[in-house]
Amino acid sequence: MTAIVTPNPTPAESASRFAQAPGDPYRYGVYLRPDPTTCAAVTAVTTQLRAQYGIVSAGAFPPHATLVGSCHITEPVGAIVDAVTRGLAEAAPFTVHNAGVRRQGVGLVYDVHHLADGITPNPAFVDLAARVDKAVAPLRSPAPNPAGHRFDRDTFRAHLSLVSHDMYVRPDLSEEVEEYVGGLPVPFPESFPGDTVTLYRTRSDDWTGRWWQTLTWEHVHTWRLRR
């Protein structure tokens, strides 16, 4: 029997994959927080998926729509709060429309990207993400893992995650999980006010791999958008 030999990574490969950057193991995310009823719906779905399949990635976070995420920032927290406060100074609340469960990438989401017609991107949502990205951009510093969620107006898709990174390692469950989620009796509002923005600090023991298995988070700050 011939042994299968797996080549060891070179020192350069190991250094790149497991590099540590100043500020590790923390990352920051700025999110739009849904209304309490929608948050409860997200939590109900992710809790059921954890109980039935051990799927944890979406439920590892508080319910949210990402404006900017996985930001590696070594500046003091106060500097982040001040920057986002300035960025939100002219932002007004808007109505978020929830089109229900949709596929996005390998996962499932509540689609909150569009206006009530289900076709037109919600310009206020896109504008809010652009404002926040511009505010935090000068504070970012390079980090090897994970890839940051840089804002791009053409590819931005506002969503509330229900199933996400677990499907990369369990693609065999994809169809079954989608059917399961479709059968859950979890009502949700068709719309809610987009008026609450939150800053969270996340931590993982290993940003290079299955970071969601050790992810923890803490709430840092909340902003309420005013007309």
Rank of each mutant, 00 (worst) to 15 (best):
F61S: 11
L139R: 12
G148T: 11
H64K: 02
S174M: 14
H165R: 15
S174R: 06
R227I: 14
V30A: 10
Q213W: 06
T214I: 12
Y168V: 14
L160W: 02
A40K: 01
F61D: 04
A137L: 15
A158V: 04
V84T: 02
P189R: 10
S164N: 14
R131D: 01
A41P: 00
V109M: 07
R131W: 00
R201H: 13
S191M: 10
A124S: 08
A135D: 02
L225F: 03
G54P: 05
Y28T: 02
L88R: 03
D133H: 09
A130Q: 06
P187D: 11
A147W: 09
P76F: 05
G107R: 06
L128Q: 00
P123Q: 00
V68W: 08
Q104Y: 14
D82Q: 12
H72L: 06
A129F: 03
L128I: 01
V84L: 12
W212A: 11
G100E: 04
A15S: 13
H221V: 05
V84R: 08
A158I: 04
E13L: 07
G69T: 05
Y110T: 10
E90D: 05
C39R: 09
A92C: 04
V106S: 07
T216L: 11
D82H: 08
H219R: 03
T120C: 05
R102A: 14
D35N: 11
V84C: 04
H97F: 05
T66H: 11
S161P: 02
V112P: 08
A12F: 08
A130M: 00
G87P: 03
V42R: 01
V181I: 03
L115P: 00
A60T: 08
A79D: 07
S14C: 12
G29V: 01
L225W: 14
R102V: 10
P7M: 06
P171M: 07
V181W: 09
R150Y: 14
G148F: 10
D133R: 05
T198E: 15
T46W: 13
R203V: 10
H97W: 10
Q20P: 02
P144W: 12
L128W: 00
W207Q: 13
T222D: 14
D154P: 01
T196D: 09
Q48G: 08
I119V: 15
E218T: 13
V136L: 06
R226Q: 13
A147I: 07
T43F: 05
F151V: 02
R170L: 07
C71I: 08
Q52V: 03
D166P: 03
Y28R: 02
C71Q: 14
P142Y: 15
S57M: 13
T95E: 08
D166N: 11
P193K: 09
Q213D: 15
L115N: 03
T208Y: 09
A83W: 01
V56Y: 04
S16I: 15
S70A: 15
V181P: 05
C39K: 09
Q213R: 15
V106H: 15
A65R: 05
Y200V: 08
I73W: 03
M1N: 11
T216K: 10
V81A: 07
D166V: 13
S70F: 12
F125P: 00
S70V: 08
A60W: 00
F125Y: 04
H219K: 07
A15Q: 14
V181T: 09
G69M: 12
I80D: 00
A143E: 05
